[in-house]
């Protein structure tokens, strides 16, 4: 859990290079500006724009 929160301190959104946030389920990193979610698989975030999913409103 703490490890996932640490991700916020060491990664940025690959698209806008801005901050990211851990989603409620703690299985994705959200960029509010780009409205994209980067999935976390096996504790590794997949920080690829092509594999990010749009944040559902």
């Amino acid at each position: 859990m703490a490890f996932k929160k640490e991700l916020l301190d060491i990664l940025v959104c690959p698209k806008c290079k801005g901050p990211i946030y851990l989603n409620e389920a703690e299985d994705g990193l959200i960029c509010n500006k780009c409205k994209l979610i980067y999935e976390i698989k096996d504790d590794i975030p997949i920080m690829l724009i092509d594999e990010a999913k749009p944040v559902s409103e």
Binding site: I10, L11, P14, P45, M47, L48
Partner: peptide
């Protein structure tokens, strides 16, 4: 300057999968 520099690197090496703050 970073975005312009980074674009050149991506053009040469493909997408980055992790970028630090």
């Amino acid at each position: 300057l970073f975005q312009d520099i980074f674009s050149r690197l991506v053009d040469q090496f493909g997408p980055a999968d992790m970028i630090s703050p």
